[in-house]
Simulated scan of single mutants.
Amino acid sequence: MHWIRWTDGDAEHTVRRRSETGMPRPVRVVPADDRLSAATAHRLACEGTALLWRGDFQQARQLLRAMARRIDRKAPAPAPAASPASAFHLHRRAAGHRARVLAKLLVPLGEDHTLGLRRAPDVRAACDEAYGPPRGGGPWAVPLRELLGVIGAHQWRTKGVDIPAIGARIHPHYGVFSPVRGEYVDLVARAPLPAAAHGATAFDLGTGTGVLAAVLAHRGVRHVVATDSNPRATVCAADNMNRLGLTSRVEIATGCGLYPPGRAALIVCNPPWLPAKPNSALEQGVYDPEGTMLHGFLSGLADHLLPGGEGWLIMSDLAEHLGLRSPGELHSAITAAGLHIQDRLTTRPRHRRSTDPADPLHKARAAEVTSLWRLRAVR
């Protein structure tokens, strides 16, 4: 959060600017309304000027879409002979530029999270969930693009995501990775439980919404301890366990790092799949710099497994297809951690981008395979 200032006529105004995505402070701020053209808005935003919207809310949404189209038309295309890694990094740079430019269109939020624009929806409940209840301090200015994400997250939280493996819905919170890609959940639902896991304890590392902990409990695991470094995730997982009536079976552990104390007969981990730096806290469910969580899981697994226990690593090979992880690197890391592969279950992605030839990473996405690696300690 930081302060921004602008002049409207002879009056100077100051307001707090909030952004969950960590966007830099604008070089200047100008008021804007329905008279502003998309071409002018795009030019000003590219120059670093923030546009504080004072007009119609629906018109602001249309302007944001028009700005996005202009950015996308100018996005550089990878050279025909470019490597997958080069194409990925070019795509990431373009996405970062797009996010920075679109974040320059700001809308005003009252101290009570009221959106004071014509034809604006009531966003107070959505903002309370994302930002916390109002604490005073005056009004805010927030990027419209981010506010639309907050509204969408509120809708997902209200509606929930259907999880056939548990016959119920999981309700993701803002800032917590949603289990909309159900193939990895299905892998955990059908993998054979090790004999040692019956009537024993399991760990779910990086639990997020708690969906995999719920699947394990649904399959009969007596006690699941779930961890996550993201405070939003532990609150979300606890909420979902309460909704599902699993609070006596699933323990949400906080402040213990990746692994909770003790050992377990089954340890499940679904780390971020791409070893790259996230552009914001909201991307930490997808990007894991240098594979820190992956290697933390592998290096600690043998010391936390009970005799006869298994570690289940859920990973996509998209990083290999993008040239971000070399072929055989994962196998080498597993061996170096004193582990051997008991089995490997695989599935293909079912999300829309895997079949979209217009996606800049289509070739890699079309070849992607998601795996559940059943690992045991070498004794």
Rank of each mutant, 00 (worst) to 15 (best):
W3M: 14
W6E: 10
H13V: 05
R18F: 07
T21V: 09
G22Q: 10
P24S: 11
R28D: 13
V29E: 02
R35D: 11
L36Q: 04
L36M: 13
A39S: 14
E47F: 06
A50Q: 05
Q58C: 10
L63D: 06
A66W: 01
R69H: 15
A79R: 15
R92Q: 15
R92G: 02
K104T: 09
L105K: 05
D112N: 14
R118D: 15
E129M: 09
A141Q: 04
L148I: 07
I166N: 05
A168R: 12
G175E: 06
P179I: 03
G182E: 11
E183P: 01
V185N: 06
A200L: 01
T209E: 03
T209K: 01
A213M: 02
V224H: 05
T227K: 04
P231K: 13
T234S: 13
N240K: 05
N242H: 13
R249Q: 15
E251H: 15
Y259Q: 10
R263Y: 03
A264D: 02
V268W: 00
N270M: 05
A281C: 04
Q284R: 14
E290T: 12
M293R: 07
M293V: 15
L298H: 06
I314K: 00
M315F: 06
D317L: 05
L318P: 00
L324H: 04
R325M: 13
L330M: 10
I341A: 08
T346F: 00
T347E: 08
T347G: 05
R353N: 10
P357E: 13
P360T: 14
E368A: 08
T370E: 03
L372W: 00
R376L: 09
